[in-house]
Design a protein around this nucleic acid. Structure first.
Length: 182
DNA sequence: CCACGGATCAGCT
DNA sequence: GCTGATCCGTGGA
């Protein structure tokens, strides 16, 4: 159930350069609705996966059944299973046919700030995000969406190499991970 | 069909 | 910071 006063990020927000979206998502509120109850979490860490020549991206192998979503319309959730046991939540960005997405790596749950979910696998576990939500439109305000909140100023944003992609050759050192410096 | 490797995590150093 | 456990599902055939 969304409240009128809240502003849900629309497709325009996601239909932009992935690095810009990854940075702009910091500080925004990720909302998961389960049976009418909302779990809200402030996004604190993101990573950009952009283009077919990004060797760390699943899209680097081109269009496959799995990566088709990344080539699709911005503003949809791309959820997959890593290491056979953890789910990762991504939001598709940029125009159709350009494969890109932002991985939501960490967020702090409102009302329990001390309990930061400091990894994409744990975040999905806490928010009960799994493949049943794969492909849903996050601009629709159902089950999963992101609300506008105070944007983190650029001098508070730190960039660094992405986690777990050492195998990605020339893409491994791209500073496409963004964290809030607090 | 089925071999292979990974967008992780906990736990230890 | 580093290592190893863990096991699903992708994609190449």
């Amino acid at each position: 159930m969304k409240t009128q006063s809240k502003e849900i990020l629309n497709r325009n927000f996601y239909n932009k350069n992935t690095l810009e979206v990854a940075k702009a998502l910091l500080g925004m509120i990720l909302v998961r609705e389960i049976n009418g109850k909302e779990i809200r979490a402030r996004i604190t860490e993101t990573e950009a996966y952009m283009g077919e020549d990004d060797l760390a991206s699943h899209a680097s192998r081109g269009r496959t059944p799995r990566t088709e979503l990344m080539f699709g319309e911005a503003g949809h959730a791309y959820i997959y299973l890593v290491y056979g046991m953890y789910h990762c939540l991504n939001i598709v960005t940029e125009k159709k046919n350009f494969p890109a997405a932002v991985l939501i790596r960490a967020a702090s749950i409102e009302g329990m700030e001390y309990k930061k979910t400091n990894g994409p696998g744990k975040l999905c576990k806490v928010l009960k995000i799994d493949k049943s939500l794969n492909g849903i439109d996050v601009t629709g305000g159902e089950k999963l969406w992101i609300e506008k909140s105070g944007r983190v100023s650029s001098d508070k944003i730190r960039s660094s190499a992405r986690i777990g992609v050492a195998y990605a050759k020339h893409s491994a050192s791209n500073p496409w991970r963004f964290t809030v410096d607090e």
